[in-house]
Amino acid sequence: MTRLERLLQDLALRLPEREIRKAGEVILAFRELSTVPVSPLYPRNFHPLLRLRKRLGGIDKEVLVSPIDLSIITNANMPAWKRIFDFHLDTDFVERTSIRGVECLLVGNKANLRRVYSLLSNLIPAMREPPRKIYSLGDEVYLKFEGDRFVKLKMIGSTLELEPYNIPLSQLSRIFGRATFILDSLFHAKNAAFYRLLFAVSLDTFGHFYEFFMKHVYPKLPPEHREFLEEMHDYRNFLQLLYFNLSRMNIDRVEDEVGIIIRRRSRPERPLELGILFREGRVEVSDRVSRAQINLLV
């Protein structure tokens, strides 16, 4: 008898028989999620525990299980450092399916699953490199790529948080491509890591960079910088020069700021500093830079 079979036998003493098969699927799903580095179940100095809940006679029956050890947890064998994850057998579901040809393991309630399906159906076709496998837990999605590379997408209302794992920005931009613009349109606010990716992807073409600049940078320019642009006969020429230089920089060195120094022939004594800052929820613009990556002479 395997450990899983023994565990299911023990669960049959605590839960209705009709729920045992589903409980087994849930345990295996959480066991698999515990191997994903960007998942909250990944055991970093703690033991992930699964609390199975079932409504019986107006009361929630609870059973604590270790998806790693495949055992029921009691006070006698309770890990010292633990994190407990709930799964309600009445309202939560595990789905093993395929979306746009990508194998998926999805865990959550019906609203979670609908939202994840909608997101992935829009996202996957636009990606340059589709993931090898996709996991989800509630409103979090984990994309797995070759070479132990992952991307976590966390949806909080109309906010998206992106978290790459083991993927430099240059690779991340190649993987997502125009899918980045789809994510940008689906969510009102994003985190700094996403805006950094959006900037990197915008450097693929001048058209995309122009859109990024006019949406995220131009409206926030300090007065002197805006005056400098508006005095030009056609400031697209300046933006093309800026794009030419930015597109040749080492994008993997970009952290939370892109620093630009603009040296004007008309006013050599007063160069302009332009900082593009990636912040939580927005892109900011500063007239001071901590480190200049680009120097322009115009």
Results as ranks from 00 to 15, higher is better:
182 I>F: 04
213 F>H: 00
108 G>R: 00
17 E>R: 11
222 P>L: 11
264 R>D: 13
73 I>Q: 00
253 R>P: 01
80 A>L: 15
96 R>P: 08
195 Y>P: 01
102 V>S: 06
70 L>S: 01
103 E>W: 03
14 R>G: 03
238 F>Y: 13
101 G>F: 07
135 Y>L: 14
41 L>S: 05
69 D>P: 02
268 P>M: 11
182 I>G: 02
182 I>V: 15
172 L>F: 06
16 P>S: 05
253 R>S: 14
156 I>Q: 01
66 S>K: 00
231 E>G: 15
201 V>K: 00
54 K>T: 02
192 A>V: 03
121 S>W: 06
225 H>N: 09
235 Y>E: 08
225 H>R: 06
68 I>D: 08
220 K>F: 10
51 R>F: 04
249 M>F: 07
131 P>Y: 11
264 R>S: 15
51 R>D: 01
149 R>A: 15
22 K>R: 14
201 V>L: 02
274 L>D: 09
272 L>A: 02
171 Q>C: 01
291 R>G: 11
70 L>M: 07
127 M>K: 03
107 V>Q: 00
288 R>H: 15
45 N>L: 11
22 K>Q: 15
33 L>T: 09
132 R>D: 10
190 K>T: 05
17 E>M: 09
85 F>P: 07
76 A>G: 02
177 G>Y: 04
135 Y>V: 14
216 H>R: 07
7 L>D: 03
14 R>C: 08
195 Y>T: 04
144 K>P: 02
276 I>E: 07
152 K>A: 15
238 F>L: 12
75 N>R: 10
258 V>G: 10
